[in-house]
């Protein structure tokens, strides 16, 4: 079975007061976080941590080699769910906001290396625009053994109609959906435009000279531990391509 971590930030008053961001508070952050937590724990998975608001720190996801502490947090669990405001940089890096400068107000995915000697297989970020659909390669460095990054390529809505997304994703995972399908289906009500995307890396066999063997990719094969197949980690030296699957309306 899996270990998981949850981080959710609903209030951004400190960031606004410091002039760091204009980010507004959210309303349904913990409806979703609690739903995801409940769905996984009901199925027997182990919650390693659940941090909220100013207890969420950017060092939790920043690589230990770069002064962070991911070895104890995000890279110490199989699956990590995070909710906060986000965007991406011009070079395709993901960027997310915190409400406390511990030690920085924002995280940049250029400082992430997940899955290296540690644990993380999957990250799920309910956060706007962390993936640049025109430059998905900008995320490549984060895959140090990690399998799939789930995020959004445009806005992701805080709405009464998305308040069950966490539980939907969690139920999909424990009902046996692949990680990719669980995310895209779980955050989509096919009315609100949530722009989901799942990103993974692949080896030479998957790239297959450009005639992609989609069936071999993590997008097609990975499930949550205990609910189906999980492929082995793919170290950077064996990564030949980056692949992504997204919904658009």
């Amino acid at each position: 079975m899996a270990t998981f971590g949850v981080e959710g930030i609903r209030y951004f008053s400190n960031a606004r007061a410091a002039g760091v961001s204009t980010a507004g508070d959210l309303t349904y952050t913990f409806n979703r976080c609690n739903g995801f937590d409940s769905a996984l724990r009901s199925a027997g998975h182990t919650r390693a941590f659940y941090w909220a608001n100013t207890d969420c720190w950017e060092t939790d996801i920043r690589d230990s080699d770069q002064g962070g502490d991911d070895v104890h947090w995000v890279d110490n669990v199989d699956i990590f769910w995070i909710e906060t405001h986000g965007n991406h940089e011009s070079n395709g890096q993901a960027r997310m906001l915190y409400d406390t400068p511990h030690t920085n107000w924002r995280t940049y995915s250029g400082q992430w290396q997940l899955g290296e000697n540690w644990n993380a297989e999957w990250v799920m970020a309910y956060s706007c625009k962390t993936v640049d659909l025109n430059n998905v390669s900008g995320l490549w460095n984060i895959f140090a053994g990690m399998h799939i990054y789930c995020g959004a390529w445009d806005n992701m809505y805080d709405a009464w109609t998305t308040d069950e997304c966490g539980e939907d994703v969690g139920d999909n995972l424990t009902d046996g959906d692949t990680i990719s399908e669980a995310w895209i289906d779980g955050v989509s009500d096919w009315a609100t435009d949530n722009h989901p995307i799942t990103v993974c890396v692949g080896n030479a066999a998957t790239w297959n000279g450009g005639n992609i063997r989609w069936d071999l990719s993590y997008l097609n094969r990975d499930h949550l531990w205990g609910h189906g197949n999980v492929d082995p980690d793919l170290p950077p030296s064996q990564q030949a391509c980056i692949l992504w699957r997204w919904a658009e309306g």
Partner: peptide, 25 residues
């Protein structure tokens, strides 16, 4: 802005509230 943000709000269209709306947890 630095952070993209996206909200949906629902408000009753009547003086009296007939349908309690989901609150934030």
């Amino acid at each position: 802005q630095e952070e993209a943000q996206a909200y949906q709000f629902v408000v009753p269209a009547t003086e009296k509230t007939y349908l309690p709306l989901p609150a934030g947890s």
